[in-house]
């Protein structure tokens, strides 16, 4: 068979395959064409890129594909797709993959502080609480500032924390179990896997020893 004939034959088969929507005919055609595209198919099957990381295509899926909305319900198709909503927002590496604090600070979003009055502004309270922890683990800095942008004092005091020095015994294990900071972090606010967002103050050299 001449080179030209062979090329024509392959071309025809691939076109047919396309028409058949990449069915078995396509595979045949590609097997024929293998000498020009060696090993791609074999290698790609076992060695997908970033096999342990949820690929971007699986993040922020539209409701009908997210596994928690019923694709057989008519309402599912009227809901907004998170990907569409998050497109313009600053990104992060966890949770919704949106940096919500930055989004608010830099006015990418303008959530209301009062459900009736769009003009009402929060009373932001700038008080940092530093909690020392043992060893070389960085100390925790709790900023009231970022929290009071979203929340009101009454959300946490006194139901979750007593506003008094020494009155709150914090346990990281119970945070993981959804108590204290874990009431929000690990459910809706950035997840606890983001250690350094809270353990953010490195020890000074002398404190380490």
């Amino acid at each position: 068979m001449s080179m030209k004939m062979r090329a024509l034959r392959i071309m025809l088969m691939i076109m047919l395959a396309t028409l058949y929507g990449l069915s078995g005919v396509g595979d045949l055609a590609r097997a024929e064409a293998e000498d020009s595209t060696p090993q791609i198919q074999r290698a790609a099957k076992v060695n997908t890129f970033n096999r342990l990381l949820k690929p971007p295509s699986e993040r922020n899926l539209p409701p009908a594909e997210d596994g928690i909305h019923d694709p057989t319900s008519e309402g599912t198709y009227l809901l907004q797709s998170p990907r569409e909503a998050f497109d313009s927002l600053p990104k992060s590496n966890s949770g919704n993959r949106v940096d919500w604090v930055k989004a608010l600070e830099e006015k990418y979003i303008e959530p209301r502080f009062d459900r009736f009055d769009p003009e009402k502004k929060p009373m932001v309270f700038d008080l940092n609480i530093v909690r020392e922890v043992k060893g070389s683990m960085p100390d925790v800095v709790y900023p009231h500032k970022q929290h009071t942008e979203w929340l009101d004092c009454s959300n946490c005091h006194p139901a979750i924390f007593i506003p008094q020095k020494g009155a709150n015994q914090i346990s990281m294990a119970s945070i993981l179990m959804g108590e204290m900071c874990g009431v929000c972090h690990g459910k809706v606010a950035f997840p606890v896997s983001e250690c350094r967002k809270c353990h953010s103050q490195n020890k000074t050299a002398e404190a380490k020893n």
Binding site: P82, N96, V98, P111, R112, F113, R115, E149, L151
Partner: peptide
């Protein structure tokens, strides 16, 4: 996520 784009946590939770 949809609601926090439009309201601060405080609106619903306080």
């Amino acid at each position: 996520w949809f609601h926090r784009v439009r309201f601060r946590c405080k609106v619903c939770h306080a």
